[in-house]
């Protein structure tokens, strides 16, 4: 039996999941049973991080425009789907190698199939 806390809703039920049959007890709704079984079978997470922007910082100011300003040093990124929990640090290592050249739009794929998963690393911010 493995004890985990359900994160499907704010209640935070304390679930007990059988390691062999994936039977769940302690849940107060069906969603808890699904979460509990998945969490043991194949726990997945979305990884978010930032990538290096490969232009010189402070190249100029464009005040007055929404979202404008100094060229940022970092571009926020994420995996576009949850990836296996055990691969998180591999994904981070690949993101660390990235050098992003502007322009980039939200959703642009920066690393396809990161760390051998079916997830892609995508931009989460526009970089003009």
């Amino acid at each position: 039996m493995k004890e985990i806390i359900c994160i499907t809703c704010p209640k935070g039920c304390h679930l007990k999941v059988d390691e062999e049959s994936y039977a769940v007890t302690g849940n107060s709704c069906p969603r808890g049973a699904v979460y509990g079984a998945n969490e043991l079978r194949n726990p997945v997470r979305v990884v978010t991080s930032t990538a290096v922007v490969s232009t010189s910082p402070d190249k100029g100011r464009e005040t007055g425009e929404a979202g404008g300003g100094v060229t940022p040093r970092r571009l926020p990124v994420k995996t576009d789907r949850p990836i296996p929990k055990g691969k998180m640090f591999e994904v981070m290592a690949e993101i660390a190698k990235l050098r992003v050249k502007p322009p980039v739009k939200v959703g642009d794929v920066l690393i396809p199939n990161v760390a051998g998963t079916d997830g892609n690393v995508v931009a989460t911010k526009n970089l003009p």
Binding site: V46, T48, R61, T63, G64, E65, A66, G67, G68, G69, P76, K78, V106, T124, K125, N126
Partner: peptide, 26 residues
């Protein structure tokens, strides 16, 4: 859907850009 912070802000910034609302930064 589950967005990151910059994505959530970006959706509102895009909507503001379609209007004549002025943003003065700095």
């Amino acid at each position: 859907e589950e967005l990151t912070g910059p994505e959530y802000a970006g959706r509102f910034i895009d909507l503001v850009k379609q209007t004549d609302i002025q943003i003065r930064t700095d």
